[in-house]
């Protein structure tokens, strides 16, 4: 039994080492005083200082956050309304719409990116609409790939809901719109929140689809990073990702601590 446990632990340990090796490298090199990524020449905090004066990195970080926020808000509203509507539909219309909804999720991202690029180019060149690749096209693309995640998170919550609650609200004098706002939306809230969070993180991290619909005047962080990896990655990026990594780490750990506290409280 002891040997069993040893094998288990070393397997988990090896996988974790594999997952974290490149991250450790990134973090260590964010403190390296040389610009080279091969040599270690001494400890420095310079890259962290330089990060806050690097216009390119800061503006693309800003762009990334703006795109993620706007697209999440739109995707959450459109997606939640869609889930409510889809839930009330007949079986076969529901199946048809859900199948099309799955498309951007099942499809390789590159195909979604290419198809949206073709759409925007088509609208611009053949229909004469002055649509420049950049902010607007990126927002539209991000909303498009985010909505399915919202729908797929909200729909199960609506299905689990007791239909009688809605009818009870109507009996108690709500009109249908009020019943939705007061009863259905709160019931679906956990799904709406997790859908919105998913949309937000996918938007922050998206590179492939953004790459096909971005223009030279508007870049997000992943696109800036990609452009750098083609030439030379400046160590400020290492510093930035170390900071972002720490923020996420703290947030996730805090969330888990709060969550387990809440569960402990429930037991009493």
């Amino acid at each position: 039994m002891k040997r069993h446990r040893l094998i288990k632990n070393s397997w988990v340990g090896a996988v974790m080492a594999f997952l974290y090796a490149p991250i450790v490298v990134l973090i260590v090199y964010s403190f390296n005083s040389s610009k080279s990524r091969a040599l270690w020449t001494g400890f420095t905090l310079d890259w962290y200082k330089k990060l806050f004066t690097n216009e390119v990195i800061l503006s693309s970080l800003m762009n990334t956050l703006i795109i993620a926020l706007i697209s999440t808000v739109f995707a959450t509203i459109i997606g939640t309304l869609a889930a409510i509507g889809i839930n009330a539909m007949r079986k076969w219309t529901q199946a048809l719409i859900l199948n099309i909804t799955y498309m951007p999720i099942i499809n390789p991202e590159i195909v979604t990116g290419v198809s949206l690029m073709l759409l925007f180019v088509f609208v611009r060149d053949r229909m004469g609409v002055p649509l420049e690749m950049g902010f607007v096209t990126m927002i539209l693309a991000h909303i498009t790939f985010s909505i399915p995640y919202v729908i797929l998170n909200v729909l199960p919550k609506l299905r689990q809901m007791d239909k009688n609650i809605y009818d009870a609200a109507l009996d108690l004098g709500c009109n249908p719109a009020m019943a939705y706002i007061k009863v259905v939306i709160p019931e679906a809230m956990p799904g709406i929140i997790s859908g919105a969070l998913m949309a937000f993180t996918f938007s922050l991290d998206d590179f492939i689809i953004s790459y096909f619909v971005s223009g030279p005047n508007f870049t997000t962080l992943p696109i800036t990073i990609y452009a750098m990896t083609r030439k030379k990655v400046s160590p400020e990026i290492n510093a930035l990702s170390t900071l972002l990594f720490l923020i996420v780490l703290v947030a996730l750990v805090a969330y888990n601590v709060v969550d387990s506290r809440r569960e402990n409280n429930k037991e009493y």
Partner: peptide, 18 residues
Amino acid sequence: MLPMWMNFLLRTYAWMTL
């Protein structure tokens, strides 16, 4: 899940270093 929060281009770039 934590490693997924670091941009995948950067993680791949780190593998180049390795």
